[in-house]
Amino acid sequence: MTTTKISNDVLSIVIQDFGAELHSIQKDNVEYLWQGDPDFWARQAPVLFPIVGKLKNGSYTYDNETFKLGGHGFARDQVFELLESEEDAVVFELRANRETREVYPFEFRLRITYKLVGNQLTVQWEVKNLDDQEMYFGIGAHPAFNVPLENGKFEDYRLTITPAHPRQYIPLNPATGVLDLSQKHVVDQTEFALTRELFKDDALVFETPEATEVCLSSTVNDRSVKISWENMPFVGLWSPYPAEAPFVCIEPWCGIADDQNTDGDLTTKFGINALAHGKKFKASYTITIN
């Protein structure tokens, strides 16, 4: 595994080529990114592609063929090529290969750019369809942030979703990890005090049809993390339960887990993206560190 560092006067960032995954986010010598511990969760900020979440029965069908594919897809377990590296920006690339074709029958190019501006890190995904047919995919983020940030305890922190208005909540089945769309409903709550019980039913999943931000902040210091995005229709908020893990994930997604009533057809999967031959799909999110 090789790591690459980018920095400016405010932030220092480390990305590893394995999964093109964030490995460190530091400000004032304080580490904001979860550093991974297999006793809780060994990963840190995996890129979810070509699916987000789990598939019903761990498989999908396409063109009358069934493919097995693990939760969150394969990009997080692939070594990306470092295409460009500057002091404050870096670009990684993954292309379809023999291993990916066994579980995902499309030719693609995935580029991930990390760019620093002041106290902000912007992460951009670019998916290009190199196949001669329409391709179907999901892509999402899964960054985990230390709680506490420098001091305090887990319960001193909160998550706040902006804009502060009612939004659709989609329950997950903790036993299977798939959605129950029949139980989707509107919730008014937009601020969540962190407790272990908050995540007893797995991730909190919301629809985000507009520009949205989620802020992790505390009552004991001024340090915070804010994730903001546009044109990403879902977000998941997660920390393991019942383990007392010292982190929380804020996950904007262009894709989502299967519904429990799905027929498994990739082309009609809830939340799937379709991309024509030769076309590009772009999405980005920004992490603001205070």
Rank of each mutant, 00 (worst) to 15 (best):
W41M: 12
F234D: 03
E87R: 07
G71C: 15
R101L: 12
E230Y: 03
G255I: 15
V10I: 04
Y104T: 15
I272M: 09
Y169Q: 06
L130K: 02
V14D: 13
V103L: 15
P163M: 05
N273E: 06
D156I: 14
A20Y: 13
P143K: 04
T162P: 06
P148G: 00
N97C: 15
Y241C: 03
K56Q: 14
G138D: 03
F49P: 03
I256R: 01
N29F: 01
N8Q: 04
H72R: 14
N290K: 09
N273S: 05
N290F: 12
S224D: 07
Q183A: 11
F40C: 09
V90W: 02
Q189S: 08
N64V: 00
R167F: 05
T4N: 08
R101W: 06
F18P: 10
F67W: 07
R167H: 10
Q168L: 13
W229P: 04
D28V: 05
H23M: 11
G73W: 11
R111Q: 11
L149Q: 03
G140C: 06
V123N: 00
K68W: 15
K5V: 11
T3S: 07
T66I: 02
K153N: 02
K115F: 02
A144H: 01
E150D: 07
A276V: 05
S239L: 01
D63K: 03
Y136S: 06
L83K: 10
T3M: 02
G58I: 12
P143S: 06
R98Y: 12
T4Q: 10
T100S: 12
D263T: 00
A164H: 07
A42K: 15
E65Y: 03
T160H: 15
E65N: 08
F192A: 11
W125N: 01
K226F: 15
F199L: 06
E134F: 12
V10D: 15
W41H: 14
M135G: 09
Q44G: 06
D77A: 01
D9S: 08
P252I: 05
L159I: 05
R43P: 12
G255L: 09
L55E: 05
P209S: 04
I289E: 11
D156C: 01
E207R: 13
